[in-house]
Design a protein around this nucleic acid. Structure first.
Length: 847
RNA sequence: GCCGAUGUGGCGAAAUGGCAGACGCAACGGACUUAAAAUCCGUUGGGCCGUAAGAGGCCCGUGCCGGUUCGAGUCCGGCCAUCGGCACCA
């Protein structure tokens, strides 16, 4: 029976004991400059986890995967003499927390407090070496005061296109500062999620559904707060290059920002003095433009549509507006559209071309209008075919593929001023030609949209903004934090009016002014939390200057040295945080232009059935259960032993058991059970010299574990420690176990299994705290042997092997090889064409 | 459709262009035990030859096809499959 099974070692006593010791002695507190234990000679290392949303479900085994990896590195770096900043906190505002509160019928402040306590208890049980003195919670007024303060910096800034930097709004010389602020109000079509009762950012909508909860999202025009992240599109793209991030994540951000280079061209409208501006990446195909298409929402539609086409156009626009986002982007459906009755003039050949509206043209991208070039664009071709519009070939492929439908680069034809040029040359020439005549200009477009920053939710930071006479203005710094009113009914209203509007008293700021009732999105708090960790108790500033400079300043552009977390934030948190960071950097508050220097994504942990863990599949593994049965050290080591950190991999309880057995072997290597059933130090552990073989394996282990921690290859580091232990287990039960080897080994094991190694360290009566030891170094000279085995191949196949001195010359090795009976047999009567000798390794005879 | 990652035993995996499968799991056999648990020892990619013997030997094998190389899991080209992301972005 499981319950009666003997524990292989007393982890259930050891682990709480050491956790209490660490807490009591505050061993993992990282002192700031100015604190008395601060040592200016130490180099800093800032290693950060993505802090969790404390959901009601508690931790799952995916959270501690990254956390264990960073904890190992943090403990290792401390022993390497670094002052290590390794903090933890709670991203507690936002939809998941609020949804849970609504479901459980409790106030989010209450559920948040409970959930945080639960998460913290679970994390502490795993023995992470966080500096808990730096714990932060985004829902704490002392924290969100500064989130609001940063919003004010953004609100009171504008992006100066001359300097390509944000500057205080006071440097703006135009007439309407509100039109250039980095935070502004706009009446735009937004993603409205009726089920959640709020609008969502583009990044929070996946396949037409809300990322949280998976509810349908519709387009609906609403007045909302926006952040001008598009101003930073170029810098967000360019400055990605210098970051040590996985290529995949960089690519996701690049694609999301979506830069494309081309030209804007103005088309005159026939019998009107209006013009339509289109954006194209292929100005070289201008002569092939046989129609124009406007987005149905395009503002010029009203002005150009003819009387007889009005009913059809209106009907089409209404139909489009009713469509969900999902229907609209459904690629399998046929193209639709309606003729406006109006014509434009193609500035290339002065031909009259019809103007249509169609929902395949998006109002939000480029100019919301395109020139239809059916011969060289798939979508335009489909549209032209359906509505019988003319198709004119203007690019000749250099291969033998058909010219109609050819979207690649070729040679310009039927295009008087650029005929015969390659597409690349033609693009340049046409752009220059257009610019000369004032018909267009070179242009760059980004897919990135401004960030929709307001939510109609209760559980978020209120905006530090008030409205007076229909105009917004910021509160003063001394009025922060703006604390939300206590509301019993905090549920979304469903109408789009924020719940905060229900608190009439609170909303009334003065006789004339009302408070803004929208709240900030979940991402606001996580946009800068890594900065607050540097100086979490500062009441004067969002982060003290000296603390910021000390913890974030290195020789790279990024502030945090190593950031570990899931890939799901690629275009959300990781993009938003870069944006805020750059604004604060421009305004002179920060030392470095980027938040995160090195980013590592841990892989998803699947259930034992190889499926994604989910409640409905019933394959969720709870860390508490694992720790109850095998202990925190086994849990940590298994999380790391499963496979490479960044890889997706399935959980296996058997695997945990295997790692637990390894830790038990470590324990019994040094401990033995006496008659009374108590563990005591094994008499085999003695102060004896290491054998040559033992010394070799010890140094090989130091080397491997050190290199593997540096490269985050924790699985192979653990393998090596297993090899070490297997080699030191007495074979005949009589050999002594060298104390010095155990001492070094325990230091190596400490980052992985901190409780077990601490307990053994104490039992061996070694001096000082194990956490205060310096990391062992290895000596290459102990790794080499006098003799090595050399593999003998014939035509690349292993046929024999022999021992040779490592000093043996190539000639000697060759001679010895040819003297081998087996080789003589195989080469008898044959001509040896070539002999390759790789010293200390292998000989290959080619016959 | 486009972009990216991955493909190695029954399973998780390991391998600076140089002995494929380290380490661990599972399985099988054994020791200890009245028995079990725990622990320890041994075997374990597939096929074939072979011996008194589990000595020894041969062939095949890292998704598929080809190439470079004395030598390829690793490098190059082309395909296939799985997973992830983006997706009417002009």
């Amino acid at each position: 029976m499981t319950s009666e099974r003997r524990k292989s070692y007393p982890f259930d006593e050891i682990e709480p004991k050491w956790q209490a010791v660490w807490e009591e002695r505050q061993l993992f507190h990282a002192p700031n400059p100015g604190e008395k234990s601060f040592d200016p000679a130490k180099r800093k290392f800032y290693i950060l986890d993505m802090f969790p949303y404390p959901s009601g479900a508690g931790l799952h085994v995916g959270h501690p995967e990254g956390y264990t990896a960073t904890d190992i590195v943090a403990r290792y770096k401390r022993m390497r003499g670094f002052n290590v900043l390794h903090p933890m906190g709670w991203d507690a505002f936002g939809l998941p927390a609020e949804q849970y509160a609504i479901k459980s019928g409790q106030h989010p402040a209450v559920t948040t407090r409970e959930n945080v306590a639960k998460f913290k208890r679970q994390l502490k049980r795993i023995g992470f070496s966080y500096d808990w003195q730096r714990e932060i919670n985004t829902t704490d007024p002392g924290y969100y005061k500064w989130t609001q303060w940063i919003f004010l910096q953004i609100y009171n800034s504008w992006f100066n296109p001359e300097t390509k930097r944000s500057e205080p709004i006071s440097t703006y010389r135009g007439t309407d500062p509100d039109s250039v602020r980095l935070a502004y109000v706009a009446d735009v079509p937004v993603n409205w999620c009726p089920e959640l009762g709020t609008v969502l950012a583009n990044e929070e909508v996946v396949d037409g559904k809300s990322e949280v909860g998976g509810f349908p999202v519709v387009r609906r025009p609403m007045r909302q707060w926006m952040l001008r992240i598009t101003a930073y599109a170029e810098r967000l793209l360019d400055e990605l290059d210098k970051l040590d991030w996985p290529q995949g994540i960089k690519l996701l951000q690049r694609n999301w920002i979506g830069r494309s280079e081309g030209a804007e061209i103005d088309f005159k409208i026939d019998k009107s003095d209006q013009e339509i501006r289109v954006f194209t990446t292929r100005p070289d195909t201008l002569y092939g433009g046989t129609f124009l298409v406007l987005a149905p929402e395009h503002s010029l539609v009203d002005l150009i549509v003819t009387e007889e086409q009005w009913p059809a156009v209106r009907e089409y626009r209404e139909r489009t507006a009713r469509k969900s986002e999902l229907e609209r982007v459904d690629l399998s459906k046929e193209k639709t559209g309606v003729f406006t009755g109006a014509y434009a003039i193609n500035p290339g050949n002065n031909e009259k071309i019809p103007i249509w509206i169609a929902d395949y043209v998006l109002v939000g991208y480029g100019t919301g209008a395109i020139g239809g070039v059916p011969a060289h664009d798939e979508r335009d071709l489909e549209f032209a075919t359906k509505f019988n519009l003319p198709i004119v070939v203007v690019v000749q492929p250099t291969g033998d593929e058909p010219a109609i439908g050819f979207t690649g680069e070729g040679i310009a034809v039927n295009s008087p001023i650029i005929n015969g040029l390659t597409s690349a040359e033609a693009k340049k020439n046409i752009a220059a030609w257009l610019e000369e005549r004032g018909l267009g200009k070179r242009a760059i477009n980004y897919k990135l949209r401004d960030w929709l920053f307001s939510r109609q939710r209760y559980w978020g930071e209120p905006f530090p903004i008030i409205w007076e006479n229909g105009k917004h203005r910021s509160l003063g710094e001394n009025e922060l934090p703006v604390v939300p009113p206590p509301l019993d009914d905090f549920k979304p209203t469903g109408t789009g009016e924020p719940p905060l509007a229900k608190a009439k008293e609170w909303v009334r700021y003065s006789d004339k002014a009302l408070r803004e009732t929208n709240t900030m999105p979940q991402w606001a708090g996580s946009c800068w939390y890594y900065l607050r960790f540097c100086d979490p108790h500062n009441h004067q500033r969002f982060v003290g200057e000296e603390a910021e400079r000390y913890w974030t300043n290195g020789d790279k552009p990024g502030s945090v040295d190593l950031y570990v977390g899931g890939t799901e934030h690629a275009v959300l948190h990781l993009l938003y945080a870069r944006f805020w960071h750059k604004v604060l950097f421009d305004l002179g508050y920060l030392s470095k232009p980027e938040p995160f220097q090195r980013l590592v994504n841990q892989g998803i942990i699947l259930g034992e059935d190889n499926q994604k863990m989910s409640k409905s599949r019933g394959n969720i593994v709870n860390p508490d259960d694992v720790i109850d049965q095998y202990g925190a050290d086994a849990f940590r080591c298994y999380e790391m032993f499963m496979g490479p950190l960044e890889q997706m991999k399935p959980w296996s309880m058997r695997g945990v058991e295997g790692v637990a057995r390894f830790l038990a072997r470590v324990w019994r290597l040094m401990m033995t059970e006496n008659q009374a059933g108590q563990w005591e130090l094994s008499p085999a552990v003695q102060d004896v010299d290491l054998s040559k073989a033992q010394r070799k394996i010890l140094h090989a282990t130091i080397k491997k574990v050190t290199e593997d921690i540096e490269s985050l290859s924790f699985n192979t580091a653990i393998s090596q420690m297993m090899i070490f232990v297997n080699a030191f287990i007495p074979q005949r039960g009589t050999e002594a176990i060298p104390l010095a080897a155990m001492q070094t080994f325990l230091v190596l094991l400490n980052p992985f299994a901190p409780h077990l190694s601490s307990e053994l360290w104490e039992n061996l009566k070694l001096t000082g705290e194990i956490t205060a030891q310096s990391w062992p170094s290895y000596d290459e000279k102990f790794l080499v042997e006098d003799e090595v085995e050399i593999v003998i191949q014939v035509n690349g196949k292993v046929r024999d092997r022999m021992k040779m001195s490592i000093q043996a010359s190539e000639e000697e090795i060759k001679k010895a090889t040819l003297a081998l009976a087996k080789i003589q047999e195989l080469t008898a009567g044959k001509q040896i064409r070539k002999t390759i000798v790789v010293p200390k390794k292998l000989v290959n005879i080619v016959i």
